[in-house]
């Protein structure tokens, strides 16, 4: 019993360090044999490329068929060019709460060059939310401390998992997990997934 309690004491902080998966920021079947957690930043040009070219291919090849579960994780960068990163994540996570994450993420990446420099993040977010009601909800939720806490939890989880650049993919398969090199070649990723999930 004492051993069990000691193990629980050791394991609890570890469990707490892994944030729950926000299903509104995930795509595919949660029971898929392979899970890819993607740590990205809306102000990062490589993430934009990844989101607009790599991800649609992954969706078509594996996510729709239920072989891969893709989870978006927030990893807001800091420093020059990333000043509006957390604000963008606040709106995106707020949009996730009303089931509009994908639309907002698409708009943020599509208009990255404009808002990341100019700072008008809301204009990009609003363009993805035609309904004034949704816009009000997202603006209110973006100020929710719970939203900022979720972003911080995911950032800390990424940092403690060895993520140091974006986009970084962590692969979870068969009880194991490991970080892939940043922005891997899609053909190699495809070969790796095919090895884990034979057709």
């Amino acid at each position: 019993m004492k051993l069990y309690a000691a193990m629980l004491m050791v394991l609890l902080p570890c469990l707490a360090a892994v944030p729950e998966i926000d299903k509104n920021k995930a795509q595919g079947s949660p029971t898929a044999p392979v899970r890819l957690e993607i740590f990205s930043d809306f102000t990062c040009p490589h993430c934009k490329h990844f989101h607009e070219t790599f991800l649609p291919q992954l969706m078509k090849d594996y996510v729709i068929s239920g072989k891969v579960y893709v989870v978006d994780r927030a990893f807001p960068l800091t420093g020059g060019g990333h000043e509006h990163s957390r604000e963008a994540f606040a709106y995106a996570v707020a949009a996730a709460r009303i089931g509009k994450y994908e639309q907002v993420a698409d708009a943020l990446y599509a208009q990255q060059a404009t808002w990341a420099l100019g700072g008008n993040v809301w204009a990009a977010v609003a363009s993805a939310l035609p309904s004034p009601e949704d816009q009000k909800k997202v603006q209110a939720l973006a100020k929710d401390p719970g939203v900022m806490a979720e972003i911080e939890r995911e950032y800390q989880y990424g940092a403690s998992s060895g993520v140091n650049e974006t986009p970084t993919i962590i692969v979870f398969v068969g009880g194991k997990h490991y970080n892939l090199p940043s922005a891997p070649d899609y053909r190699l990723l495809k070969s790796m997934i095919d090895a884990y999930v034979p057709k």
């Binding site: 490991y178 892939l180 891997p184 070649d185 190699l188 495809k190 070969s191 790796m192 090895a195």
Partner: peptide, 22 residues
């Protein structure tokens, strides 16, 4: 592990041409 995982690791060094990775 699958060979492609090691290939990604080699590719990260940016010193081996793609055709030689596999």
């Amino acid at each position: 592990e699958p060979w492609a995982l090691f290939a990604m690791g080699i590719d990260a060094y940016h010193i081996v041409p793609y055709r030689f990775l596999e």
